[in-house]
Amino acid sequence: MFQVAAHPTSFDSHKHGHGHRSSHSSSQHYHQQPAVSSSVQLPRTLARPPFADISREALTAASPELANVPSEYIRRRLRDTAPQMMAGIASLAPSHLPSTLPRSHLPSSLSIPIRSQSSHSTQPSYPTHILAIAPSKPSSSHSADALTIVPTHALVLASQCALLPRFPASSSANPGSPQIQLPVIPVSLPSPAAFQLLHPFLYTHNLGALLASLLPMPQGFVQAPGFGGDHVKHVLGSGQKLHELSVYLCQVSHSLSALTSHAAHIKELWQDCVALGIYDVELWDAMDLAWEVVLGAMNLAARQ
């Protein structure tokens, strides 16, 4: 099983050039202290790991024809093909794709029927592997023997996750084939549940959808036309806007316990990103935004 670390090292924004903390100090007066509940103590900031480029070996194993193509170009092109890849995942017959598999009886591969596609649907690009994800530290909420099953495309992971090793070769489904044979890859991550939120983002890079999966936010905020990295940076630089989002979150969450749960989800996503070696600047900014908002809401709730 591929085991990856759960704890980040410190991030040097001056050295690596994609930190933002020094550029939005105006936000800090709303969130001076880390929020604390009776059972959870949270860090003031989510430390970013040092930058590391993706593995060319893993990338070449996923797609040999891209061996000499710049990684940034590959990532941009993959965003254009995200609808086809998501359609390929959706085409797997759910009745033959379990949500979990027992670690003690994990097959080396799965044969999964492919659902028939409408002639007007997006031509699917079928997944190449199936991840069987175990928690790094099993808890009462997740059985140590139950592995979370996630069909994926090796190229999507290899182009964005610097700390994943190369995956074994996978045969593509033949056109018109009624089923596909996918290798099963055991992986250990801090939070299998958080990876299920992260995985769609690696295809779509939809920051609004990611934020909405982490926290209740005003619909008009995350669905604003053109919502993206620049918008996130702007809000991070505005103490007033952060405060408004924290007030909203505090009002709709109703309890410090609910806010603590939101914070735990963000922290788990952060740990998975570190463990996988994901260095998408906009993703890290979005996590920082969610973290600032939830800490502010917890501090507001604690004073009520």
Rank of each mutant, 00 (worst) to 15 (best):
G226A: 07
N68S: 15
R79D: 07
P216I: 11
D12M: 05
F167Q: 09
H234T: 14
L66N: 06
L92N: 03
T128E: 04
I278E: 02
Q3L: 12
G226H: 12
H129D: 10
N68A: 15
H265S: 13
S13M: 11
L163F: 13
E72D: 14
M298Q: 14
S91F: 09
C161N: 08
S141D: 15
L249S: 04
E268H: 12
Q223W: 00
H129G: 08
P216Y: 09
I114R: 15
L78A: 09
A154R: 04
Q179P: 01
H14M: 00
S159C: 10
L211N: 04
K233E: 04
L189V: 09
T100G: 06
R48G: 11
S99L: 14
V252R: 02
P183M: 07
Q33V: 10
S27L: 09
S55H: 05
S125T: 12
L256G: 05
V281Y: 07
P107V: 01
T122Q: 14
G228I: 07
V36S: 09
S171Y: 10
L42R: 15
V294M: 08
L189F: 05
V232Q: 01
S177I: 00
R79N: 00
L197H: 15
G19E: 02
S108D: 15
A275M: 02
I180Q: 05
N299A: 09
P151I: 00
P127D: 06
P8L: 11
V4I: 14
S188H: 02
H14S: 05
S261P: 03
P64I: 10
Q28A: 11
K137I: 15
W284K: 01
G296M: 05
E244N: 09
L131P: 01
M298L: 14
